[in-house]
Amino acid sequence: MSIQHFRVALIPFFAAFCLPVFAHPETLVKVKDAEDQLGARVGYIELDLNSGKILESFRPEERFPMMSTFKVLLCGAVLSRVDAGQEQLGRRIHYSQNDLVKYSPVTEKHLTDGMTVRELCSAAITMSDNTAANLLLTTIGGPKELTAFLHNMGDHVTRLDRWEPELNEAIPNDERDTTMPAAMATTLRKLLTGELLTLASRQQLIDWMEADKVAGPLLRSALPAGWFIADKSGASERGSRGIIAALGPDGKPSRIVVIYTTGSQATMDERNRQIAEIGASLIKHW
């Protein structure tokens, strides 16, 4: 058993032996400061991975655009179909130039040979490839079927209504393609630790998130040596930015963190910096 498999397999085991986890309101002070700095709403939640207890939250039940963070949920739905014998990670999917949409750094290189379902999930999560996400959405029946999958998990909040890139429109008060921090954190925890997916599929999902290559300026920039993080970021119109993550010290995840912001006029660099500073406060007061 690899170190990674050891880590995921023991998450339920550690729940019975973990020390009490204490919240630190200092992080919420930073979240509120980020709102002031960005001139935008910020949603935040910090969840204990083992118990599911909410440690801190700010606007946990307000809607925010999901942006590309939905791609983790999408690959969770794909893995659920794999577990049920309805899909194979090794199945190759062929597509054409007409299928390519904006920001497809991986799929645009494989027009001649296509990509496997496994490769598409990797591209969608680690590189946020939009065509990969659309191709995967097609395999499960489209955005409405992803919403149905989430409903069956008990998440009646999170919804996907459109495809890439239209889902990134982020119109104020538009509930399409949105979630709430509390709903996203709970759903992510179920995917990573619950019985919905097999152990192998849970491991695969967290491996893809751990290999994320496009979230460096966010929480990863504040991470001390030896800490673990598996994450997925997102960005969209109207100053929207977000990240969902499982992270913790000693090389294993122990908390879920979800951060969303929307409605800012700030630059992408400034949005990144504010999220990184929230992460730094979280780690300092861990």
Rank of each mutant, 00 (worst) to 15 (best):
H94Y: 14
T186N: 13
A222Y: 09
L219M: 06
V82H: 07
E166R: 07
P20T: 09
L89V: 05
F149Y: 12
G43W: 01
S254W: 07
R91M: 04
L19P: 14
S68A: 00
L135Q: 07
T138D: 14
V8Y: 15
A222L: 06
G114D: 15
T107A: 11
L38F: 06
W227V: 02
E175H: 10
L137R: 01
D129T: 00
E175L: 11
T178N: 02
L136E: 00
V257G: 00
I11E: 05
D250S: 13
G263V: 08
F58C: 06
E61N: 14
Q37R: 13
L160P: 02
M268Q: 07
R220G: 02
P224I: 02
N168V: 00
D33Y: 15
L136F: 02
R220A: 02
G43T: 02
M209L: 05
K53D: 13
L19Q: 15
F64V: 04
A225T: 13
S254R: 09
F6P: 09
P105R: 05
R162A: 05
R118T: 11
D177R: 01
A77V: 10
M268L: 11
E210S: 10
E169M: 10
N168F: 00
D231G: 04
R273K: 14
R118W: 14
L219A: 01
I283F: 12
L135I: 12
R176H: 06
E166G: 08
S264T: 13
L73A: 09
G279A: 10
R41D: 05
V214R: 07
I93G: 00
A245M: 05
D33A: 15
L38N: 06
A9P: 12
V106A: 09
L247P: 01
K102E: 03
P165G: 03
T179S: 06
D212H: 05
I206M: 15
L167I: 10
A133V: 02
Q265L: 13
E119D: 13
I243T: 02
T69D: 00
L73S: 05
P143K: 00
L47V: 15
T116S: 11
D212I: 06
G251A: 08
D231V: 04
T131A: 09
L74A: 04
D212K: 03
L191I: 09
T178P: 01
L10R: 04
G142S: 04
S264M: 07
H285V: 05
I3F: 14
N50H: 12
H24N: 09
L49R: 02
L47P: 02
A133P: 10
G43N: 00
I275R: 02
D174L: 03
A266E: 08
S80I: 09
S240H: 08
R59P: 10
R59L: 01
M67V: 06
I206Q: 11
A170F: 13
D177M: 02
P253S: 06
L137N: 00
A23G: 14
E108A: 12
L218R: 01
F6R: 10
R91K: 08
S221H: 10
A182G: 13
M127S: 09
A148T: 15
L188W: 01
D129V: 00
L73T: 06
R81P: 00
L188R: 01
V214G: 06
P12Q: 11
P253E: 05
P165A: 03
L38A: 07
A183W: 07
I93Y: 04
I229M: 06
L49I: 05
A148S: 14
P60D: 13
D250K: 11
N50I: 14
P20D: 15
G251I: 05
L188D: 00
I256S: 02
L19I: 15
G242R: 02
L219H: 01
I256F: 04
G90L: 11
I243F: 05
D177T: 00
A266V: 10
K232Q: 03
A280N: 14
W163A: 06
